[in-house]
């Protein structure tokens, strides 16, 4: 499952939904791939995660170099923290999934694209635009590896 997050009306924050749209098209004929894009990650998504073998979270990162594509493993949150009604991070969604359904995906990765600007407006900054093909290649590689059991 590809689980993207972002707001296409907030500049580079729209990277997640855009990449989800690309993945939807790229893997539309593959029943083993599900793509969900949301403006925020809400607790109900734990139920979707519970039904998935592998999860690739896709988001923009405001703490990264603009345009930088980063891939990192996601660990289940150790602290109970505060699960928010409107927005949660990937580790807490994994924790909620584990508490409620007693399962964890075999693999959980987070792909982020460093944001240059998240001001109001559609379209990406130059840095992010230029790196979207690289982000697409990364998603393709991760999904194909997951499908092959890698």
């Amino acid at each position: 499952m590809i689980l993207a997050c972002g707001n296409s009306l907030r500049g580079d924050d729209g990277a997640g939904p855009w990449l989800a749209g690309w993945a939807e098209e790229r893997f539309h004929s593959n029943a083993g791939v599900r793509v969900i894009a949301r403006m925020q990650w809400t607790p109900e998504l734990a139920a979707e995660i519970a039904e998935s073998n592998s999860v690739l979270f896709v988001d923009c990162a405001i703490d990264g170099t603009p345009g930088e594509v980063r891939i990192s493993p996601v660990e289940c949150a150790e602290d109970a923290g505060e699960i928010a009604t409107h927005h949660n991070d990937a580790p807490h969604l994994l924790r909620l999934c584990r508490e409620l359904y007693g399962v964890s995906p075999r693999s959980s990765l987070l792909l982020t694209v460093g944001a240059g600007s998240t001001e109001l407006g559609e379209g990406f900054s130059t840095d992010v635009s230029s790196m979207m093909p690289e982000a697409c290649r990364c998603i393709e590689r991760i999904v194909l590896e997951a499908l092959s059991g890698g």
Binding site: P43, E44, A46, A47, A80, G81, E82, I83, H92, R95, L96, E99, L100, Y101, G102
Partner: peptide, 18 residues
Amino acid sequence: NVLGVAAATPVLGKAGVA
């Protein structure tokens, strides 16, 4: 919080999510 509810009473936690 809801995570605590999920840990204490997963059946109700699941019902809420569902």
